[in-house]
Design a protein around this nucleic acid. Structure first.
Lengths: 209, 209
DNA sequence: GTCATTTTGGATCGAGCGGTCCTCAAATAT
DNA sequence: ATATTTGAGGACCGCTCGATCCAAAATGAC
């Protein structure tokens, strides 16, 4: 797992906590701003999120926004990196949370983490952006696809002892697809209980009965 | 299954093949126009599809477009009805295609039909619209959710003899989620072979080994 | 023919979009 | 102090958006 951080590309070589050089100091927290931007894109989607929405939520002037992200699309790509990386590290941590418990428990924790992250709220950013931009933005689609592939390999590693090396990859992709589809169903309005029940089936795919 | 047709709401009471009354005759085929509109929404999404795109594809002037659909959103809702209804009847037909074969074959045909419809092309309109509009348009989300629920009941009916009445509903929803997620993965750029392999797992969920 | 009715094409609308730019403020460097 | 560098504020840009309107065209009813 683990993706390139790709921090705010903003003040081009300033990883948020860098030493302060000459010139007027920045008045906003880049991480906070990026988080706010991500929140807007998650809530509204890409096209429907206006510069007005984004700058207001991030507390940035238009000039600061463009200095930080370069464009609306640049902001989306940065927010996407943040989201994907956070999601992957969450899975890593869930898997490593209780080393004494068995592999089945690890899988259950990982599946719980996947579903808890987004399905209970309002869908999954991966699904939303894949749907809206997958056919139009090669770079965004690539980031998403790479992240999905990493997660699939990760899940396959967890499931291999239970379902066998040969079947693990397919099962992992199926579990991932099951989660993504669950997020889509949830966003369309399916009851939380129905969606939550799918965790059991996801675990079954990964060899946990 | 079976949804209300909800034909073109256009020339308000003219189901495409109605008798011609007074006034200048329509120069376009409403069904064809709606199909073209659906094609644009499938290719571009809702926000990114402009009136220019829609009218050009449908061969309609702006006035005809607004007379037919009332608004861009009206066109989307009509196109959504068309898509959902077509998808459901396709599943019905697939299930009933070969009555002599067993229930397992029926399930395989239905799953094949689900995946063949969209996954091989460019994602699933249900996923796309759920992602883009699920949080914003109650009516669109409702249509999608209802259609998903009908499909889930339909699949549950097919799977019940194989996995038991109690588990059927959950398994059906899982298979459906698996398909929706597969469409999302495909749209992000996953290889067709990988996505296609998920059909096996969907069948397994429905009791077909 | 005349009238009522409906469709068509295209001009047009205000609003909002993403993006740029200029000016001023606030810090460091000398 | 002064010069320099950088961020912030906001007016402004051209453009495209979805939507409306109007006059011309094409039919049925009489």
């Amino acid at each position: 797992m683990s993706a390139t951080p790709s921090h705010i590309p903003a003040p081009v070589f300033c990883p948020a906590s860098a030493r302060q050089g000459p010139g007027r100091p920045r008045e906003y927290d880049p991480d906070r701003a990026l988080g706010a931007v991500l929140g807007v894109f998650k809530a509204r989607g890409y096209e429907a999120a206006s510069l007005e929405d984004l700058t207001a939520a991030a507390g940035l002037s238009r000039s600061s926004f463009y200095a930080a992200f370069g464009s609306k699309r640049g902001a989306l790509l940065a927010a996407l990196d943040l989201y994907l990386e956070a999601g992957e590290t969450a899975l890593d941590r869930a898997a490593a949370a209780d080393p004494e418990a068995g592999p089945r428990d690890a899988i259950r924790r990982v599946v719980d983490t996947m579903f808890a992250a987004d399905v209970h709220r309002a869908g999954c950013f991966v699904v939303d952006m894949s749907a809206e931009l997958g056919a139009r933005d090669i770079e965004a689609a690539g980031k998403i696809n790479d992240s999905i592939a990493r997660k699939a390999r990760f899940l396959a590693g967890l499931a291999a002892p239970l379902v066998g090396e040969a079947a693990a990859e397919g099962r992992a992709r199926a579990a991932l697809a099951l989660y993504l589809g669950a997020a889509a169903m949830r966003k369309a309005g399916a009851p939380v209980t129905d969606v939550d029940a799918l965790k059991t089936e996801a675990c079954r795919l990964l060899g946990v009965d």
